[in-house]
Design a protein around this nucleic acid. Structure first.
Lengths: 335, 335
DNA sequence: CTGTTAGCGCTTTCAA
DNA sequence: TTGAAAGCGCTAACAG
């Protein structure tokens, strides 16, 4: 069933059917009704490939998600999709796994589908400049920070990971903690783990607290399971720590489970703070003290900047969204 | 940049370029290398719209997800995507919210994009037969059960919700519980909540335990927040209950949080079982006793059945995947 | 092995 | 207001 079949049944030409289906004004009322009734009768829908091939005016925004498993990215995704829908753009979601090169994938998708813009959730496309360079449409990286490239097309919207980690660490210190272990991700580059680590270290040095990386930093993936494993290792290496700075809530929760199993009470024996502020934090037992990233604002600002770039040729921008410190029950005041 | 530009630069015709790019054998080595080098030079990629418009052989499988927020559906989605990728099909993910009519959306998407098959994660497309009827390609509903329509194209793969709920309730009863409240979803139709309720009731009646729906059933959404609200209401209405049957893990965890806040210990004062078996269950404190749905098997079987229908014109099938009962720490033996 | 060309389903200009 | 027709970028059949 094509536009041609509809036209034949209506006794008109394909152009007329097309005009009706695209809400062009120059069709007689009678013809419009005729066409609509036939379209209705067959449940006819225009072929998207042909339509988009023909139309120069592209309306697709691609959303590239690095890993579906992250609760944080999911809430961003959900909100962005909802916001895009009424705007006459089509959102096309592509999920990558941890090991895909997001810039390369984005590049391929750009040439295949010619979207008007690309949203990166998670990932760090700016780390792959040669792949990224070929993408000539506005892009925005949400939740990770990017280095602003001069005259580039990559914006970013993120929580100030440095400031947030520093704030959180200051809080631990203010509660009397000085022997603090870290459960964190891969360091290096401009990734969020590095930023959070820098913020953490900045607080320690400001407060005159030494840090022995080899003993006190355990690398972990952002999962319950790895958080738990890391906690075990950390406690073995550093038995007299009083607090743990975990770089995500899921790590923190995995760690808490492990601490319970090792017979250490949170917060009585060990205090812990997380990062992200996923809903679960308020339902865990004990409630997790954490940094809440404002997912609504991250989504809205990210999309807003992208649309600004697309529709008004606005410049690429890097923007921070304020974090919220959420005091739970997982940190104990010492002395 | 189109195939024409590549051809011009190579000094050959578009057909040759097309042949190279589609791995047809009948191209000389020299020409193939020439073309590939030019393609490489420009990072050229075929336009997907034109390609798909032209090709009759369709290779897209649409995955319709009802609600991104469900941890269960996300793990299904992730696995299915990974499995589709190497099979030369393209997976196209569409996320619906709770209120969308999945059959109608599927119908529209079918005509727009002509996929070879559709996978429904969550939802109940069989509830909208008039919209669903127009879809002439194989479909599979994963995680919810569907009623097999005679000669239809809708398969389903799910946990046997009835049997699982019955098993779980039998367990509560065997541990000495007779005053059991339920936190569940909307009943009615062929939805999972109704199946789980039926299984629950079947166990009670088998064990000669009466059930006062008005007092003992509280309706809730599948979220932490609603689970917590429901628990409060349930305990107010039915203060001397000894156990709660929650229809999902997130409801159960919301409920546990609420119970703690009301000063009731789990499992000492109230026992609770969940449903789904999300990873969090093993990291919560106390570990949640629950039914684990085998997401790997659900995904693999679902995709397998769909491919069977697509490639071998196999019949639609309804299949159950065995559940696993996971004993945690949230149920206490009475007496 | 390679070039030429019809045509996938649609939109849009140009004429009528 | 409508019809006719070009052409979006590509594939594949056909001819050479």
């Amino acid at each position: 069933m094509t536009i041609k079949d509809i036209a034949r049944e209506c006794g008109c030409a394909v152009g007329t059917v097309s005009r009706v289906l695209n809400d062009h004004p120059d069709v007689s009322v009678k013809m419009r009704e005729k066409v609509l009734s036939v379209v209705e009768k067959y449940g006819f829908i225009l072929n998207a490939n042909a339509k988009q091939l023909k139309e120069q005016t592209r309306r697709t925004i691609v959303i590239l998600v690095k890993g579906t498993s992250s609760i944080l990215l999911n809430s961003l995704l959900e909100r962005i999709q909802k916001r895009i829908e009424p705007l006459l753009y089509n959102a096309s979601v592509v999920v990558l796994d941890e090991y895909d090169n997001e810039a390369r994938v984005a590049n391929r998708i750009y040439y295949e589908h010619k979207p008007v813009g690309i949203i990166f959730l998670g990932g760090s496309p700016d780390l792959f400049p040669s792949d990224f360079a070929r993408i000539p449409v506005p892009c925005v990286l949400i939740s990770n920070e990017s280095r602003l490239m001069e005259g580039g097309n990559l914006s970013s919207v993120s929580t100030d990971n440095f400031a947030a980690a520093q704030y959180s660490t200051d809080y631990l210190v203010s509660m009397g903690h000085r022997r603090i272990g870290v459960i964190g991700g891969d360091l290096g580059g401009s990734g969020i783990s590095q930023r959070r680590y820098d913020g953490f270290m900045s607080s320690l040095s400001k407060n005159g607290i030494p840090f022995d990386y080899e003993r006190s930093y355990v690398k972990s993936k952002y999962s319950f399971e790895d958080g738990a494993k890391a906690a075990r290792l950390l406690v073995e290496r550093y038995p007299d720590l009083t607090a743990i700075f975990a770089m995500s809530d899921v790590m923190a929760i995995g760690a808490m489970r492990c601490l319970f199993d090792m017979g250490r009470k949170v917060p009585d024996d060990v205090s812990i703070v997380g990062f992200d502020g996923i809903p679960l934090c308020e339902y865990y037992q004990p409630r997790l003290t954490t940094i809440r990233q404002q997912t609504e604002l991250l989504s809205d600002e990210g999309l807003g900047i992208l649309l600004g770039c697309i529709e008004k040729s606005g410049p690429a921008r890097n923007k921070f969204i304020p974090f919220e410190f959420m005091e739970g029950e997982s940190v104990k005041r010492l002395c």
